[in-house]
């Protein structure tokens, strides 16, 4: 009796673990690319960050994105300095992040391109905003390539622009993301 019950429990546990291993694949990257672009008649400003960290859980559809502001590269060192010192206040708020969950169910085992939307929280400059971000997820031989474009209004995140340069910085900044995610080993 005892052994039978034990066997049953063991089987249950094993099957549970197997199920978790099969479905709970974590995809990740540390070299995701995020760029932003500010366009005004006076001046265009762009910067790119190639060290964006992303984790995606295929089981739950949860996604987490995090980037350091200091990793954004500008064509001009002075701009980079002002971005961190004056606008993003990097010492206080070192990173921007997004945590969300895909609303679509994706079959990660099947190659193809799927439109996705993720509902979650966008945290920039210490101000959290509920956002639904739309993008595309391409499954290619076990790799997930996630692309996404969206706009961020500076006023939504309490990013202040002095009147002297207000004509040089757009009110709404367009942001482009490309993350190539690979299965995380020994997770």
């Amino acid at each position: 009796m005892d052994t039978k019950l034990f066997r049953l429990a063991f089987l249950l546990m094993a099957s549970q673990l197997l199920a978790i291993c099969a479905s709970a694949q974590i995809y990740m990257t540390k070299t995701g690319q995020t760029s932003f672009f500010s366009e005004t008649p006076l001046e265009n400003i762009s910067a790119v960050n190639q060290q964006v960290a992303v984790l995606l859980s295929s089981a739950s559809g949860e996604i987490a994105v995090r980037m350091q502001h200091t990793a954004f590269r500008f064509p001009n060192k002075l701009m980079q300095e002002h971005y961190n010192e004056n606008y993003m206040e990097t010492a206080k708020y070192p990173a921007a992040s997004f945590t969300g969950k895909f609303s679509e169910h994706i079959d990660y085992g099947k190659d193809g391109t799927y439109p996705v939307s993720a509902e979650g929280v966008l945290d920039i400059h210490g101000v959290k905003q509920k956002r639904v971000l739309k993008g595309q997820l391409q499954i290619d031989h076990g790799q997930c390539i996630l692309t996404c474009e969206f706009d961020v209004r500076l006023s939504d995140h309490n990013i202040q622009v002095p009147t002297l340069v207000i004509a040089k910085i757009a009110e709404s900044i367009s942001i482009k993301n490309k993350f190539v995610l690979t299965p995380k080993k020994n997770s």
Binding site: D2, L5, F10, Q16, L17, L56, S60, A64
Partner: peptide, 25 residues
């Protein structure tokens, strides 16, 4: 033994579900 095995199996599933992706980042 059975009880402990059952409890263990429950804990593992709970732990995996709670993996906080942001904390890891």
């Amino acid at each position: 033994k059975t009880t402990s095995a059952l409890i263990f199996s429950l804990i593992t599933s709970v732990a995996v579900a709670q993996t906080d992706l942001m904390k890891e980042l």
